[in-house]
Design a protein around this nucleic acid. Structure first.
Lengths: 232, 232
DNA sequence: GTATTGGTGGATACATCGTACGGTAGGAAG
DNA sequence: CTTCCTACCGTACGATGTATCCACCAATAC
């Protein structure tokens, strides 16, 4: 039953040599261009020069197609392989995840929203878990489980946050003037009520921190937390 | 233009005394029952005994309605108010967010997926930012911005993760037998390939950690990281 | 060689969604 | 009383995911 190992059906004659890989690839391309909302089975089929129902010979559901797409991205993430130290490996996987999410923003919409159990997702999970199990402060399985959970939470949260910020920045226009024109009036008025002084300081005086540095900061913060010994 | 302060339109005669609050309330009730996918403007309208188009007198978009719903939830989160110490305040807000997401699972689908700029969302942001600005190790605005970002990332990631786990647990059935029947075969076979030894140990030997404790663990981990001094 | 049958691929059809649009009724003004 | 304008409301449209049905083709039986 599970998604990633259903047998590849063989087209009788070869009118269009379709495959799950090909379908997933064009779906990813369309999702990159138009977002998840702009993705539809009919558009994918049209892009492939096929009727919409042909896709159901290769894919049970739209959600199964999404699982397929997600695992293709994980395949790219898994390519980073193993580094010398546990920390370098964890950092490499985390950055690969972030890079993938920035290249495929729809990926961040799916991050944490469904269990990632595809073979490549499992490979990524294996790589990070194996690396973390070698970290100091991770003594038994419970420690490892907590460490994996904490790390994944930070990755998911940070990436989602960054992608959302990028989207609003793009929609409002990246320059300051356009921002002030769209969200500015409401937000400015809201902040001038004096009810949100700290938020106001953050918005007005806060420098625009570099996104990658912020991601690194979050990563090192939990990794340091994981590393530090805790009382049993 | 922004969502949360459009004037409340006044129905000419009072055929059905509709209001944005009432619409948001029934939308939340339906989303709690059927999830975000099961939520449609037509169902909301039918629930209110009104034609679908009436809702557009009070709401521009479906996405604006979602913003409204989100801010209603934030109103409940904001109720926790201020505690004695900065850490207690942060923990209270975080737990209130988690509780709200567990009560309204659709909320976690929207967490981090769009900017939360409603008045109550801003109030929550103000509360946490003000508390964090009093934390040791947070010296200037950049520190505060980093701290807020890291904390929010952990909250978003942890909550999303927990809700997703709860959903799959519910869909596969909560007991071990049903789990083995649905995901078990595939996952067991996958893990027996030997390609994912660490993940296998986690799944097989790993105890089911208490969800709230895990959340607390993640929180204390970043809070400790934020608190600890870093080299300038 | 012909008829039949089984299976497969594609097109049509359906329920549902968000939302645009045009008619209509009812109150205000002359 | 008539006329106009505004504000409400139902209908309609395009798009979606997916079930169903139909026609065609290949292989087999006679």
């Amino acid at each position: 039953m599970p998604v990633w190992e259903r047998p590849e059906p063989q087209p009788r004659a070869v009118p269009v040599p379709l495959s799950r890989e090909k379908i997933a690839a064009t779906a990813i391309r369309l999702a990159d261009a138009n977002g998840l909302d702009g993705l539809s089975l009919r558009k994918i089929a049209k892009e492939l020069g096929v009727g919409p129902m042909r896709l159901y010979d290769y894919v049970i559901n739209k959600s199964e197609l999404l699982d397929l797409m997600v695992d293709v991205v994980y395949a790219r993430i898994a390519e980073v392989g193993q580094r010398s130290g546990w920390r370098d490996t964890v950092l490499a996987v985390a950055h690969a995840t972030r890079d993938a999410a920035l290249d495929h923003e729809w990926f961040s919409d799916l991050l944490g929203g469904r269990p990632h159990l595809g073979p490549h997702a499992l490979a990524v999970g294996e790589a990070t878990a194996a690396a973390l199990s070698a970290a100091p402060g991770v003594r038994d399985i419970d420690d490892l489980q907590r460490a994996v959970g904490a790390l994944n939470a930070v990755i998911i949260g940070s990436v989602r946050r960054e992608v959302t910020e990028r989207r609003t920045a793009r929609s409002t226009g990246t320059d300051e003037a356009a921002f002030q024109a769209s969200l500015g009036p409401y937000l400015t008025r809201m902040l001038k009520t004096g009810r949100y002084p700290t938020v106001a300081r953050l918005v007005i005086d806060g420098a625009h921190l570099n996104a990658e540095e912020t991601f690194n900061h979050n990563l090192t913060t939990i990794l340091d937390g994981i590393t530090r010994e805790r009382p049993a």
